[in-house]
Simulated assay, not measured.
Amino acid sequence: MFSSFAFKIFQESIDTYHIKDNVSQEFSNPYPKDKVEHLLYRKNWIDTVQWHYEDIIRDPEINPDDALELKRKIDASNQDRTDLVEYIDSYFLDKYKSVEIRQDATINTESPAWALDRLSILALKIYHMQEEVDRKDASPEHIQKCTEKLNVLLEQKKDLSSAIDQLLKDIESGSKYMKVYKQMKMYNDDELNPVLRGQKG
């Protein structure tokens, strides 16, 4: 199943990141550029680095200049994340381009890649919640609460994985079809963001 295949790659990315556990570490993709594995690994690495950006920026003692620089890194990361999702959807569009779409076919509320985006984030939630469960310095109450949360996340993983695999099966059979809408983010565009537009000239 594709969801299981993708989740293993997400886990590999997360585990590799945490060997050094540093947002500034060098990125190296172990998969060839012409493989979907390459896109999935890169996608999760972006998510993993951003997860830790978000931790850092919430430090109440953070220097304001550092916070501003980090905010801009988060903005750039969000754009990279969106681009990767669209690349992954392009993979699925190409894969299923010869499928004959049925007359009664319907479109899904989200594309396969955006569902995989949720699975990537879920992999991070599971990893970090497991860390909390395994903490030796935490109270029994904390560990119990985190264990309960981890069980919910694992149930969510099961449900989301099933939904992704069913969606791909439906697209492959022609009973669902997919479209990719290029994300029209306005806040980075100096023609659409009024603050940036005001600085032109």
Score class of each variant (00 low, 15 high):
2 F>K: 15
2 F>L: 15
2 F>T: 14
3 S>K: 02
5 F>C: 12
7 F>I: 06
7 F>A: 04
18 H>S: 02
19 I>Y: 01
19 I>K: 11
22 N>G: 02
29 N>M: 08
30 P>I: 04
35 K>P: 00
36 V>A: 04
38 H>V: 00
44 N>K: 02
68 L>D: 14
68 L>V: 09
70 L>F: 08
74 I>N: 09
75 D>V: 13
76 A>D: 15
77 S>N: 07
84 L>M: 12
84 L>Q: 08
86 E>H: 04
87 Y>H: 11
87 Y>M: 09
90 S>E: 10
93 L>Y: 04
94 D>F: 03
95 K>D: 00
95 K>N: 01
97 K>Q: 05
97 K>D: 03
98 S>V: 05
99 V>M: 00
100 E>R: 09
101 I>A: 03
103 Q>L: 14
104 D>Q: 10
104 D>Y: 00
106 T>E: 13
107 I>F: 07
108 N>W: 10
108 N>D: 14
117 D>E: 13
119 L>D: 03
122 L>G: 02
122 L>S: 03
123 A>Q: 00
126 I>Y: 03
134 D>V: 03
136 K>C: 00
137 D>T: 10
140 P>C: 07
140 P>E: 10
141 E>V: 13
142 H>R: 13
142 H>C: 05
146 C>A: 15
146 C>D: 13
148 E>G: 04
148 E>W: 01
150 L>M: 06
151 N>D: 15
152 V>C: 01
155 E>R: 13
158 K>L: 09
159 D>M: 12
159 D>L: 14
160 L>P: 05
162 S>N: 13
162 S>A: 15
164 I>Q: 04
164 I>P: 04
164 I>K: 04
166 Q>E: 14
166 Q>W: 06
166 Q>A: 11
167 L>N: 06
167 L>A: 07
173 S>F: 01
179 K>Y: 13
184 M>N: 15
191 E>K: 15
196 L>R: 03
